[in-house]
Amino acid sequence: MTWIAPPPPPFGGSLVADERTLLEGFLDWQRAVLVGKCTGLTGAELAQRSTPPSTLSLLGLLRHVTDVELEWFHQRFRGETVAFHYRRADAKDAAFDELDPAAAEQDHARLLAQWEDSRAVAATAALDDAFEDVLRGPMSLRAMYLHLIQEYARHNGHADLLRQRIDGETG
């Protein structure tokens, strides 16, 4: 039986809330939008590339943001050494370049598991907790949330175009 990407996990929350709840909620919303763009597609459809020479695909985006979450919550925020799921020193774009449509279900599940892990990392931290980012200098968890919201939002724009190219679906 062919795997079909399911709808995103439920998300939501009040838009009249404290800052932490709003930041977490907006990040969850952006996460759900990306996964929602994949709903109803097969692994082969998710692996369809945009336009040559680009290797951009919905499956590649899912794989990419899995590593982005790992990078930001564990490597940057916690200062841990991490083993990325897809990115390698010799292939920074492996998330896009080395797709296996047959592994789409596993890749999708890995992203959702990474979200849970990221939430757990941040759960005990304060928004003012800071770390030293090699590119930006001192950075707070608050700023990291804002960065990740914009990262997902940017990729969600890509996902809109990719989905429209696959089956014409928009919105």
Rank of each mutant, 00 (worst) to 15 (best):
G79F: 11
L61H: 04
S50V: 01
A113W: 03
W115N: 03
D90E: 15
R87I: 07
T21V: 07
E69R: 12
R63L: 01
A102T: 12
E24L: 08
E24Q: 09
T42H: 09
T81A: 12
L56R: 15
A83K: 15
A109M: 01
A102Q: 13
F131T: 13
E24M: 03
F131A: 05
A95H: 08
E19R: 13
W115F: 09
F84C: 03
Q75Y: 08
D28C: 02
A125F: 13
W29E: 09
D67I: 02
G43N: 11
A83Q: 15
L22C: 12
A109R: 15
A125Y: 13
G36F: 07
T81F: 02
D97H: 08
L61V: 02
A126P: 02
R78P: 00
E105M: 03
A125C: 09
F84S: 09
E105D: 06
L112Y: 10
P101D: 10
W29Q: 12
L127I: 09
F77P: 03
P101I: 08
Q114R: 15
Y86L: 02
S50K: 04
E45V: 00
R49Q: 10
L56H: 13
K37E: 06
F26I: 12
Q30P: 00
L61P: 01
L111E: 07
L46N: 11
L34E: 11
D97F: 04
R31D: 04
T55S: 10
H108N: 05
A102L: 05
K37F: 05
F96K: 07
R76S: 12
A104H: 11
A126K: 15
D117S: 15
D117T: 15
T51D: 07
C38V: 04
A95Q: 07
A89K: 15
T124C: 05
Q75P: 00
K92L: 14
R20C: 06
L111R: 09
L58N: 12
Q114N: 08
A32G: 10
F73V: 10
Q114C: 06
D129A: 14
A95R: 04
Q106G: 08
E71R: 14
E80V: 02
D129E: 12
A122H: 03
R88H: 08
L58D: 09
A120V: 02
R76N: 11
Q114F: 04
R31F: 02
F131M: 11
A122P: 01
D128M: 10
F131I: 03
P53N: 14
D117E: 14
H85P: 00
F96Y: 14
T55A: 12
K92N: 08
A91S: 10
D117V: 13
L27C: 02
F84P: 01
P52W: 09
D90R: 07
K37L: 01
P101H: 06
V33I: 14
E71Q: 14
K37N: 07
D28M: 04
D93L: 13
W29D: 10
R63V: 01
A89V: 06
D67M: 03
F73D: 10
Y86D: 06
P53I: 08
Q75I: 00
P52R: 11
G40Y: 11
A32V: 06
F77Q: 10
Q75H: 14
S118I: 00
R31K: 08
V121K: 08
S54C: 07
D90Q: 13
R20K: 11
A125L: 13
C38N: 06
E45S: 06
F26Y: 15
T51N: 05
A120D: 13
D90K: 09
Q30L: 00
L59K: 12
D117F: 00
